[in-house]
């Protein structure tokens, strides 16, 4: 097919190029700015568990742990609920009711995160503090608190994407399944869910991406305590203590102190680079799976 360079094509190329250039420039800038810390710390910037900026020790491991732990808690709590809600709305609700439900849930996704953060301070912190009382947590600021708050925040994202994935399974297949004598439950379990699996996984990954990148809500309830590397990664106990995530560190006032001090600043931009990398990998995996799921249905 001959390419026709009309205005529409030209401008969409142009704008795509700008978008790509922006992300490349951003990543490039973070890489360049963070060079001193990689020289100073080497791989121990990733594996080091001590972050004491005045002693020029920069190990990001406990922040990576915090980010991952908080995002996983959110996913574990939100995914079953979100998938359940998606199955209900995609498979059982009539069209109009489904749309009404979807719009309502998508509205939740649009609530500014600082509002969730304030609700977290008002309600969730104290509730978690009371619930965990027999474990004697130091305060209501814990990784768990941040995880639960994030779960509420990513639930709408996962639900609405999972609903789309389920709706993308062609209706004819459901009819065929019922025609073969399956109950509606069996049709969901054996036809819709397996067919939509890549899309559902994608929904969860995109939710995870959002959880990893969320800043202000986490900032308000995670406690921002540095150097909380757990003795055992498998243990649940550290989740009841305060911690620090990549985003809560970057949101704090340490960035103001770091500015103008090359090494410290490099360490901070290095954290930015790590965060960008983490979110990018998870989100790209999600988008890739979504495309895969899309192709699968349209063959």
């Amino acid at each position: 097919m001959r390419l026709r360079w009309n205005m529409t094509r030209l401008s969409s190329w142009l704008f795509s190029a700008i978008a790509i250039a922006a992300i490349v420039a951003m990543a490039g800038l973070l890489v360049i700015e963070s060079v001193p810390v990689w020289k100073h710390e080497g791989a121990s910037f990733l594996t080091g568990t001590r972050w004491f900026f005045r002693q020029e020790e920069f190990g990001a491991a406990s922040m990576i742990y915090g980010s991952v732990a908080v995002a996983l808690i959110a996913l574990v709590l939100a995914a079953p609920l979100a998938l359940g809600a998606a199955v209900f709305s995609a498979e059982y609700l009539p069209r109009r009711a489904r749309l009404a439900l979807k719009v309502t849930i998508e509205l939740l996704a649009g609530v500014p995160s600082v509002v969730y953060g304030l609700l977290g301070i008002l309600l969730l912190r104290d509730w978690i503090y009371q619930v965990l009382e027999r474990f004697d947590p130091l305060s209501g600021d814990t990784l768990l608190t941040a995880g639960v708050l994030l779960a509420v925040m990513i639930l709408p994202t996962i639900m609405t994407l999972a609903d789309d994935a389920l709706r993308a399974v062609p209706g004819a297949q459901r009819v065929a399944a019922r025609g073969l004598g399956m109950t509606s439950t069996e049709a969901v379990l054996h036809v819709s869910l397996p067919q939509a699996a890549p899309g559902l996984l994608a929904a969860m990954l995109l939710g995870l991406g959002r959880a990893l990148g969320e800043t202000i809500a986490v900032f308000l309830v995670v406690g921002r305590q540095d150097n909380q590397w757990p003795e055992s990664l498998a243990s649940l106990r550290p989740l009841m203590e305060a911690g620090q995530t990549l985003t809560s560190k970057l949101g704090g006032s340490e960035t103001n102190i770091a500015y103008g001090q090359p090494l410290h600043w490099a360490a901070i931009t290095g954290l930015g680079l790590l965060l960008l990398g983490l979110v990018l990998v998870v989100t790209l995996a999600g988008v890739w799976l979504q495309r895969l799921a899309g192709k699968h249905h349209h063959v």
Binding site: R54, R125, D126, Y129, S139, G140, G223, R224, Q225, D226
Partner: peptide, 19 residues
């Protein structure tokens, strides 16, 4: 250099200490 729970603004500090 120490690692404690951290608070930022005055509202946050007062609220968290009170609770």
């Amino acid at each position: 250099q120490v690692s404690h729970l951290e608070v930022g603004g005055n509202e946050e500090a007062r609220n968290k200490v009170a609770s």
